[in-house]
């Protein structure tokens, strides 16, 4: 009626709402003191390296305005790189440079920017423009992910990343986010990227949505989204499960990208992952969370990340 569902219908479909996510999933599973680990990408990077999680290599960190002028020379050996605020979120302040043309920098869209623009971007980052509460920040420079060509047909520039929701070490739901012309090379859903729900067991596409409406073809490339079949799926799911052990977060979103040569890489961890993944999957995640709870309560499952990833792939897809 009027395009509105009743709360009962949503409950029946197993939808987790924002309030339940905040009160039950986040507040009860993610201790506050762990937040800095994931809110500061530099700390996440350190965490990942210490725990042997694969992640794009850190090229450098710009901490002071005075260092900006050296950046141009410093980046000479790195034609491709990404500058991001250590405390950014929602894709804010991420500058992807996919190549050089003379002294100019090439963005994934093909447009050129000069070094002043890059310097300004770093300057803005340092002064906190992209960070929570406008706090001064540092600018991280990391290698650009050379993404697996398997996705070429399905994405318009940028790196499609795969978001896996991990609940108490069990990967429960996954989707991939494909950049579009509208999202300027970034794969954030609310910026117009396409979300494709992935079968947690196989990594095959389930269903795709853009801006909340179901679609079947990529709006820019026209590729049939149902053909998506993420390679290295088992490794990817296991990597996501290991993120829980490394970070200690009971409810987390792991953003993983597929690099052509290095395979799955952890891009960032999120202590407050969004709920759009349910729409992309066409199903709520409450049922899967309940199933995990049931397993923990009854069967005392091993802590081992690989075991948990395998169990998830075997048991959760059907729920």
């Amino acid at each position: 009626m009027l395009g509105l569902a009743t709360p009962r219908q949503l409950a029946k479909a197993g939808i987790v709402g924002m309030n339940r996510r905040n009160v039950e999933l986040i507040a009860q599973n993610n201790p506050r003191h762990l937040y800095p680990l994931v809110d500061d990408k530099l700390q996440t990077k350190k965490l990942a390296e210490e725990n042997g999680l694969d992640t794009p290599a850190l090229i450098g960190v710009v901490r002071l305005t005075g260092q900006i002028k050296e950046v141009h020379d410093f980046l000479k050996p790195h034609p491709q790189f990404v500058i991001k605020p250590a405390r950014g979120s929602g894709g804010k302040g991420i500058l992807v440079i996919s190549g050089r043309e003379g002294d100019d920098y090439v963005k994934p869209s093909g447009s050129l920017i000069g070094f002043e623009a890059v310097a300004r971007h770093i300057n803005n980052t340092l002064s906190g423009l992209y960070s929570l509460g406008g706090k001064p920040d540092v600018a991280m420079i990391e290698t650009m992910v050379d993404f697996d060509p398997i996705f070429d047909r399905f994405t318009f520039e940028g790196v499609p990343d795969i978001r896996v929701i991990v609940y108490k070490g069990f990967p429960v739901m996954a989707m991939t986010r494909l950049s579009t012309a509208a999202s300027d090379g970034k794969a954030n859903l609310h910026q117009g990227a396409v979300g494709v729900g992935l079968d947690i067991a196989t990594g095959k596409a389930l269903r795709a949505v853009q801006n909340g409406t179901p679609i079947t073809q990529h709006p820019d490339t026209g590729a049939n989204l149902a053909e998506i079949n993420v390679p290295h799926w088992e490794n990817l799911v296991r990597l996501s499960a290991r993120c829980q052990a490394a970070s200690g977060l009971g409810y987390l979103g792991a953003d993983i990208v597929l690099d052509k040569s290095e395979g799955p890489l952890v891009l960032e961890l999120n202590a407050r992952p969004g709920l759009a993944i349910q729409i992309a999957n066409g199903t709520g995640m409450a049922g899967r969370i309940d199933r995990v709870e049931q397993l923990i309560a009854r069967d005392n499952p091993p802590e081992d990340a690989v075991w948990r990833a395998n169990w998830s792939m075997k048991h959760l897809a059907a729920i």
């Binding site: 395009g3 569902a5 009743t6 219908q9 949503l10 479909a13 939808i15 924002m18 729409i279």
Partner: peptide
């Protein structure tokens, strides 16, 4: 309200496609 875990009004709209499928 701080402990309210039910749906928000806007979510009745946002997740409506998922409810319809069942």
């Amino acid at each position: 309200i701080g402990q309210y875990t039910g749906y928000r009004l806007s979510e009745l709209r946002r997740f409506e496609p998922l409810a319809r499928k069942d």
